[in-house]
Nucleic acid binder design. Structure first.
Lengths: 192, 192
DNA sequence: ATTATCTATAGATCTATAGATAATGC
DNA sequence: ATTATCTATAGATCTATAGATAATGC
């Protein structure tokens, strides 16, 4: 059942989008090629016409997810020109973000998986992380450029760690406390 | 080949220890029962005499790993009575810790896996996290008890996030920068 | 506790085909 | 417009792996 080039490109797109969400929700190993194809309304066999392997898809889906995150952060920052940092914090450390990993940050959802992945995937993560830190560095108050950079890197760690831990203990009081404490401490550090 | 109760208990112990290291190194799904048993010098089939399921082992190994972490943190803190917080930071944010996940923090190695696990495992993680935050709260400078608690929770997020990200981008310059920035910012915040 | 075995799953490959695209001819 | 070719997909299948169970032995 042949399909136009346009349709095929659209199918490829759908596969990458479905994978982007399912990987974040279930981990790289927690979802299979067949289920990703089903989510994209296609059959298992067609997969290898689009991708060399599952790992190939992992890398491509990760790249797209992180590129979208950078675009989203930029939009958030531009929408709040007088308090860009506060806008990023509120957005990132929300219960809504915690409760829907499939639509959220790739680093908080897949940091461990990335650490155990091959070089191609890890490089995708490194190249996806840099722009987010850049955006943070431009939004964060600080004496010097070096100080803002350092604060941005540390803030990124706090954001990812807080979300990761809030999810790991989801359902317990500690989960909300984690988001709130990280939010307050980061906001306070920015005022110094 | 039947074995005394004492030997059996020792075998069980070895399985839990092997699992504790292998899970942290490879993730809950990244290592199989057969390989864990091999690491404990036992055969695959014997596993189900000790544990109801793999998930049962996951929960038990997680509990032990985290209990040991709390004991280790207490030892570190007691060995540096005038700068306990600095001692914890230096220990946690070292390249050595980053480069050997199998012997390191369960939250930085398995936070994502825990978030995707069942309630039993997530409860184990919540109960393992609380003591670490307590130790941090007692080591960290701060005006009030509430302020120290809040700082401790946020610091825990920074530690776990920095290590997770440093591993996700391992091999790139950003990896070292992540550890150093988190270290400097946390130490600076404690001086305020 | 060992050894053998069962069953389900998942990544990957193979084959046939519908139908799109390219080449040909008027 | 016709004919030939190409290719994305479906569906079936292969192979390896992993959790779990059963049979056996001491």
């Amino acid at each position: 059942m042949r399909v136009s080039r346009e349709k095929a490109a659209e199918h490829r797109d759908r596969i990458i989008d479905a994978a982007g969400a399912l990987f974040r929700a279930k981990g790289f190993g927690g979802i299979g090629v067949a289920d990703i194809m089903k989510a994209a309304d296609l059959t298992h066999g067609g997969f290898y016409g689009h991708f060399a392997s599952k790992e190939d898809l992992v890398a491509q889906a990760s790249r797209r997810t992180m590129a979208r995150a950078a675009a989203n952060w930029t939009k958030l920052v531009e929408a709040a020109p007088d308090s860009p940092y506060a806008a990023l914090l509120a957005h990132y450390l929300s219960p809504k973000h915690r409760d829907d990993p499939g639509k959220g940050c790739a680093f908080a959802a897949l940091g461990n998986d990335a650490a155990r992945s091959g070089k191609v995937v890890r490089k995708a993560f490194a190249e996806g992380l840099a722009p987010l830190i850049e955006i943070l560095a431009q939004s964060i108050p600080g004496k010097s450029k070096a100080a803002r950079r350092r604060k941005a890197v540390a803030a990124m760690a706090t954001l990812v760690g807080a979300l990761t831990l809030a999810r790991a203990v989801e359902g317990m009081p500690l989960s909300d406390e984690m988001l709130e404490a990280a939010h307050r401490e980061l906001a306070a550090a920015a005022r110094v």
